[in-house]
């Protein structure tokens, strides 16, 4: 792709629009960072300053890390999101392979169900899932946080689309070479679909790391709370109206994702645009 050079007024106009929208997107984030290093008195002062007059960052971050079990929340987040991502992949890849490459009666109907699953929002299913969790005694446990997301219609759909692009001859060659059907999924299809799988894992981890809705329903014990929920209870219980430590906590919760993105930025963008397959 070549970059067209624009006449300068158009270029200025375009960049102004981009800068303004980017600033709008970033403002809450910047505000969060700014508040996390300000003292309580300074926050509600009229007038706007990005940098604090007195640096309260150390106090705020110390409070965030000690007043609430924030490291525990982060660890819970890693455990829950990791389990969800791995289980989703383990189940989605074979389903996607079957829908993409195997011939059987009812394949079209099954795929229609997957698409249906794709358009049903999580909130609609919350009540039935809550009852299932209650009946099975899964609520208020790690399993309770994980089980509703183990099957991902989005994952099945994404991988199925990618698997369909892999030539049938490769599947045929693998069968002749003696690879079983599950072997084809894990030895042949999954490595070839690596960009799609990475993209899916990114979506999965990000959405469940930031998820507040289901943890709010499923978990009461503080020791099980994932980061987003932890922050919310932190506000109620410990910090009260003390926004400095709260914002510091928010920064710490968001930081892992942002850091991961910055470190692997190029890889992420490649995966999300699904380029460079061949």
């Amino acid at each position: 792709m070549s970059v067209r050079s624009l006449p300068w007024p158009a270029a200025v106009a375009r960049h102004s629009v981009l800068i303004v929208t980017a600033a709008l997107m970033l403002l809450p984030f910047v505000w969060m960072l700014s508040l996390s290093v300000k003292g309580p008195g300074e926050m509600f002062r009229s007038g706007f300053a990005l940098l604090p007059a007195h640096f309260h960052g150390l106090d705020n971050y110390r409070a965030a890390l000690t007043a609430a079990p924030l490291p525990r929340f982060l660890l819970n987040g890693v455990l829950v999101c990791g389990s969800i991502a791995i289980l989703q992949l383990l189940l989605c890849a074979p389903c996607a392979y079957a829908l993409a490459k195997l011939q059987f009666k009812g394949r079209g109907a099954l795929f229609a169900l997957v698409l249906l699953g794709l358009i049903i929002p999580q909130q609609v299913l919350a009540l039935p899932l809550f009852f299932i969790g209650y009946r099975l005694g899964l609520l208020d446990s790690y399993v309770g946080l994980i089980f509703p997301f183990v099957i991902s219609p989005f994952g099945i759909f994404l991988l199925r689309q990618f698997f369909r692009g892999i030539p049938d001859d490769i599947v045929h060659a693998a069968r002749l070479d003696g690879v079983s059907e599950l072997g084809i999924v894990w030895r042949i299809m999954a490595p070839m679909a690596q960009p799609a799988i990475i993209a899916f894992l990114i979506f999965s981890v990000v959405s469940h790391w930031n998820d507040l809705f289901w943890p709010l329903i499923a978990v009461r014990s503080e020791s099980l709370m994932p980061p987003a929920l932890g922050i919310v209870t932190f506000r109620d219980a410990e910090a009260g109206t003390d926004y400095g430590p709260l914002m510091a906590g928010a920064v710490l919760v968001v930081a892992p994702l942002v850091l991961a993105f910055l470190l692997a930025q190029r890889r992420f963008i490649e995966s999300l645009t699904l380029g460079g397959v061949k």
């Binding site: 030539p167 001859d169 490769i170 045929h172 060659a173 693998a174 069968r175 002749l176 070479d177 003696g178 690879v179 042949i188 490595p191 070839m192 690596q194 061949k278």
Partner: peptide, 19 residues
Amino acid sequence: HPRQRDVAMVFQSYALYPH
């Protein structure tokens, strides 16, 4: 099953495993 037939096949597209 194909693997029990003791046949090998060469495909037009070669069908090598790219990874």
